[in-house]
Each structure stands twice: as structure tokens, then as C-alpha cells.
Nucleic acid binder design. Sequence first.
DNA 1: TTGTAGGCGTTATCAA
DNA 2: TTGATAACGCCTACAA
Lengths: 341, 341
Amino acid sequence: MKRITMKDVALKAGVSTAAVSYVLNGKEGKVSETTLLKIQQAMAELNYIPDYSARSLASNRSNLIGVVIPQTEDQAQLLLENPFYSDLVCGIESQLRLKNYHLILSGVDKDKGYLDVSMQRNLDGAIIMGIYQEGFYEELKKVDIPIVLVDSYIEDAYFTTLGIDDEHGGKMATEHLLESGHTNIALVTGAIRKGGVIEKRYAGYRQALREANIFYNPDNVFEGSVSYEYGVEAGRLIAQDHPHITAVCATSDMVAIGVINGLNEFGKRVPDDISIIGFDDISYAKTFIPHLTTIGQHISSRGVMAAQLLIEAIEGKRESKQSNIVLPIELIKRDSVKVIP
Amino acid sequence: MKRITMKDVALKAGVSTAAVSYVLNGKEGKVSETTLLKIQQAMAELNYIPDYSARSLASNRSNLIGVVIPQTEDQAQLLLENPFYSDLVCGIESQLRLKNYHLILSGVDKDKGYLDVSMQRNLDGAIIMGIYQEGFYEELKKVDIPIVLVDSYIEDAYFTTLGIDDEHGGKMATEHLLESGHTNIALVTGAIRKGGVIEKRYAGYRQALREANIFYNPDNVFEGSVSYEYGVEAGRLIAQDHPHITAVCATSDMVAIGVINGLNEFGKRVPDDISIIGFDDISYAKTFIPHLTTIGQHISSRGVMAAQLLIEAIEGKRESKQSNIVLPIELIKRDSVKVIP
DNA sequence: TTGTAGGCGTTATCAA
DNA sequence: TTGATAACGCCTACAA
């Protein structure tokens, strides 16, 4: 299919390519009503489709947004299998499409940065999920495009961050267990890394215990990775060696589901034998049996919001590029927590 | 950050931009050993990053692959929340990144085609999942780039298709239920549309019954949408009005999980009261309780394969552009089917 | 209000 | 083996 260019349109409409470019870029007022119509008609008849490569080259705007997702530990694949990220991507994509941007989805190879991609593609902006090494962010800043960090506690005024109050969430979850009569509460969690959401949720857990005057027992903390598999492992351990534990606070729903499976292997039932609360409210949470009690964040609308923030920054609608947005969370009571008298 | 161009590299190395372009494109033999070294060194020192927009403009190759995913029925969001698609995307992305391609992820607006995106971005190829209206494909052909169709029975020699034997899968699933002693087997399915995978699975279901000399009862077929929600609905109906049904064959794991939830609402347990088999083996299937018996296709490796096929076609390594690949499937026995004597 | 022309960073065609 | 130089399709001063 031969490419129709601005020249063709200009020719057909009997105007210059500059005029075509003007209407293409919505520079109203630069052209008269009549030429506008002529051009629009010519575009429609020729079925003109602009070439974004050329546009990007000439204008330094690509209408391309980079979206970076964490990878599995073996660095082989995206963590999209964690519905948390796919939900987020759904939200982002819908918003970007609405605003006429396209989305380049990728992971980042270990020891490789994101500078390459952003320069190669002339990205207009990027949404980064998860946390990376220090150097990653420094490099990112050099590119000088708006960036939204999702779930990162990086303290750097350069970035816009979009998160939730993870510490409060961890506290809410633990308190719900406490209020339900549990006092021997385990925490099953991914690696507690500095600057990550897990660290905060862990802090919330400890604070809730403290405020309830409950002794913090390090043996009750199971720290591994944010994955189903680790959850299973922890569940097994709890079932076998920790008969005193009556409730588990998991720092992610996937982990919670793993724990339930691990417990199940040893005949422990949720919530009858052990109660559990998750975190995130991924779409599985309400389809799993028992329906998971969890801390809900509106994942998909977070994606929408991330995209909106980014676009605003790109199009210069926000005064200050930088801001730190904290979205509300809520306790969602379902069936995985039992009240004990 | 000021952009380093080929010119800068050429200047530093004391050669022409043409020479730089040669080494960039691995045209070995076009340059002498010494200039090669000089250029490579200059690139490294300057930290040169090529501009793909310019390259795309000049060469008509973008190293960009379009990936299209079906949308939710309200056309608002991607169906990425269905882990089937996110698993696929994982596979695709990993392979593309390996081969130095980038991935543009998007849905397609109703009554809009994909011609726009592919022309705008000069896509080198595309992977399309799911089925669309007739016109969609005709339009796609005009763009004249390699295209891999995943899960589509479109009969058109133009496209490479990558699928599984859905009919056989439907049959295997039903037979497993039959062999487990069930004779009154419901089918819960999404819309049975022509050219789609569901139609084939449905055919497999019927054939298995026929071969077992079991009367096909249309009342046992629950046709809705491929979604958790519809599964719940069907599960409720079965629990309430169809006491004779002892097993359910679902045409997708998400539907199966919905059915289980619907049954559960009325106190029917799986597999004790009713057996169920799913389809796809999404990652969720083995984490769900009861672990889902299902028809397994290696989803993520399918993604890898789709990407490989596409790249081969793009880089002209395959003689015939077109082919129809059918991947193997297998019955995965887990805990959701009970043998009745 | 309209048109001309140079430039964006690469590739590719020809000569040298 | 190298190096000018003309595309590629679009944007944008600047001039008319």
C-alpha cells in the first residue's frame, strides 16, 4: 500500500504542505475556513495517515509512552502474570489510547537501563512500576522527560510518584486481625527492601502490634519473595511448625493465596483454622474461595491516573511537574478472616 | 541531554557518516578493520544511541511490533485481566526484547481498525489475538506486513496462524468427564461465534457425546460470554435448576472458576457434588482451590513462538510467509473432577 | 492567510 | 574501502 503523504494531500487540495501541517496540528487560526475544509476533504478522500516517525524526527514528539514492568526473578519474563500489573496496564492503556498515545511495554534487563529505549524511541514520557537500583533513576533523569513512578518511595523531587499509604494499609490489615480477636499474627512478605512498598507495609504491621501492646515476635515474620510460590512455602512452615499462629497478614494477595494453598496441604482450613488477610485486591481476590479479605486499592483506576498525570506533565498542563500523589485504600471484608471470641 | 548523532560519531572517528551507518547495520566487509575499531570506540566514548525514528523514516523498518488484545465488552479496557492474554504477552515480550524489537500494546476500538496504528508507526509486523469482524482482516492485508493470528480460524492464506486443536481439546475434556463416569455433562461457554475457538471446543464437546452414544441435550449448554461473571451466573442456574447435571465442561478456566463460585453460593461443592473441567491452564488454575483440572496449552511459550514466527517472517528467514501452526495440548488432571462409580 | 525552504537523524545510491 | 549527497515525511521559522 503506497504511502499517502502530506504532499499528496496538499496537491489534491491545491495548497502547500505547510497548510496541511497546520490543520494536522490543530493550529486553528492559521488557516482560513475554506482551506481548512478543502484540506480535510482531501485527507478524507485520500485516507491520509500521518507518519509518526517523520513527525517525531521533526518535532521531537513521538506520542509514545514507555511502560516498565518488573520481571520475574530469573529475569526471563514480565511479572504480568501477577494480575496486579496487568490490571494496572489495562488502566494505563485505556487512558493513553483515549488521548492518542501509544504504549511501549517492556521489562528492563538487569544491569541494563532504560535510557536506550527512551532515547531510541524518543519517548514523550514513561511510567515505571516497582523499584530498581539507584543508578537506574539517575540515568532516567538524564533523558529529561516526564516520569511517573508507581509504587516507589524514591525520594527525589524530579519524579512524580503515585502510590498508596502502604504503612497505613499494613496497619489496617493487622488491626482488622487484632479486632477479630487474633493476637498471634504472622506476617508473610516479600523481601523487605529499602524504598519499597513492602518495607512500609511491614512497618504498619509492627506499629499495629505495638499500639495493641503485643510483643513483636521476629519468628512470626516470614520473608521471601512476592510470589505465589513463596506463599505456599510459608504456608507449609506455618502449618507444620507454628501451631500457635491463628492469623496471617500477607503483603500481597498472590502471597496470601499461596499461603492458603500451603496450609491446605496440611489440612489447615481458611478461615476455620487460620485467618488470612491479603493486600492489593487483585481481581482474583474476589474469585478465590474463600473470597479474600484484603486491603483494596483501585488498581485499574490507578493506571488511568498514572497515565493522566503523565500526559498532563507532557502537555504542560501542570504547573509543577512534580508531585506525590497518595491514593486512598480501604479494608475489604470478605470471607478469609474468622472472628474468634 | 543533547542528542549524539551519527555526525558526532563520524567527526570523532574521523570518518564519514556513511561509514558509521555501515557498522551500525553490521555490514561487515564494507569497512576496514581499522575504521571499524575507530568507529566503535567513538560510539562507546560518546555513548551514542541511534534514533529509531530517523532510521524508520529512511529505511522503512521500525523494529516495532504491534500486539493487539481483545477488549472487555464495554470496550473500555483490555482483556488483560484475563490471565490468558497476559501470559501470552509475557512470552511475546521476552522474545521480542531478546531480538531487539519493541512492542506496542493496544486494543482496537470498535468500528476502528488497526490500519492507522500500523501505518502511523511503520510497524514491522503484528500479532493479533482473538477474532474480529471480516473487514478488520481485509484492511490489515493492505498494510502488507507479516501478521501472526493467535487463536483465529480465519481461513486466509495471507496470515500465519498459531493455534491449538480446539476441537480436539473440547473432545478430550468431555471424554475425561465421560471416563470419570459422568453422563450428564453441561457445557458452559462464551458466545459460540463462527471462526472462533469456542465454536471448535463446542464441536469437540458434541462429538465426544456422540461417540459415547449420549443424547445431546441443548438445555445442558449454557452460552454467555467468556468471563468469570458469566460463569457465576451459569453456576447458579445449574445449582438451582439442574440437579441432574453431575459435571461441567467449561470452555475457559476463568469461566470454570466462575461456575465453581456460582455453585458454591448454593452449597454445591466441587468436586464432591459436581465435577468441573476448564480450558487453557492459566497460571491461576493451579493456585485455585480446588486445583483445576483443565486442558493445558503452554500459553507463555505460545507467545514466544508467535514472536519467533513473526520475526522470521520479517527478516525473511522463512521461505513461505504463511503457515498454520497447531500446538499440542494436554489433559492436566488436578482436583476438580471426581470419579463416580 | 499562505507558501518556500531548511532541517530533524538515518539510510542508500553512486562515484571516487 | 570510503565519502558526498539525495531521499524519507514532517515541522516551522521566515518570507511573501
